[in-house]
Design a protein around this nucleic acid. Structure first.
Lengths: 151, 151
DNA sequence: AGTGAAATGCCCGCCGT
DNA sequence: ACGGCGGGCATTTCACT
């Protein structure tokens, strides 16, 4: 599914500030407020926009530690099994199966390094996990929409 | 900075659906609409909430290919230089400096693998980049926006 | 365009110090 | 007594038909 250029500009405007009024966005892209609303409704219906959220500063909420964990699974572990195993952890912000040696990459937010260590131990103890390899985030440089909890 | 339990519940509600009315959220957490607004305003002022945005499905927007790229820099490259170098690419969704062998991890969205290849070549050609190592995302398993509940 | 709902600003009252 | 915080009301702006 390919999107209109107008749709793209609307999505971009909403991604920057989802609280802008339809009239305001319309003035920018050259449409009336109702026309913008119709397009946004269509974007919601087709799934291009899946919802509205807040950008949260994890550090301000006490989630000071961020990490990427590569997971190496035992053979014959389905992506669904990995998903089911990981979604029980509130600390897991994102997870994807990937190419390369590892089977999945998991993005984790924890309160501090000690908290992260506990979570990692529990994940490493999951029956489908063979071994893990983690890197800790030192400082977030860039965070745009679509990439987990932005700073 | 530590947040109130009430604030946390409000943030959680907004993270799930930022379009809920203050009255609705207030009914859930036991406050009036103006009281909720005051706390949200305070969260915005203190930086705990950094803005309102839309959840976007990259695939629906035509960004079918996602990848994680580890960047190995030449010595003495500052995080700011990496940031400046990367933020010119609209395909870069997130970037962080990390521990371990690589200097930074970059999350990239591209229209297809060919597009990703072009972007990767350009990034690899940046003066501060020594070499790169990429993994392509096969399927996104989990994607949460906003932070989960504390453990 | 018109209607209705939600956000916003204001004032008051409560409870803490 | 004073300051922070929540409740209720009035106004206005925006969403929706």
């Amino acid at each position: 599914m390919s999107l209109n250029d107008l749709d793209e500009r609307i999505v971009h405007a909403l991604a920057e500030d989802a609280r802008r009024s339809y009239a305001d966005i319309g003035a920018e892209v050259g449409l009336s407020a109702p026309a913008v609303k119709r397009r946004v409704d269509r974007l919601l219906a087709t799934g291009a926009i899946t919802g509205f959220t807040v950008r949260v500063d994890p550090a301000a909420l006490g989630w000071e530690t961020e990490a990427f964990v590569e997971i190496y699974c035992r053979h014959k572990t389905s992506p669904e099994a990995i998903k089911r195993g990981l979604e029980r952890y509130p600390e897991v912000a994102a997870a994807s199966t990937v190419t390369g040696e590892a089977d999945a990459v998991v993005q984790i937010y924890a309160e501090d390094v000690r908290h992260f260590e506990r979570v990692l131990e529990r994940i490493a103890g999951e029956p489908f996990v063979e071994r893990t390899k983690s890197v800790l985030v030192l400082s977030p440089l860039l965070r745009r929409y679509g990439a987990g909890a932005p700073a």
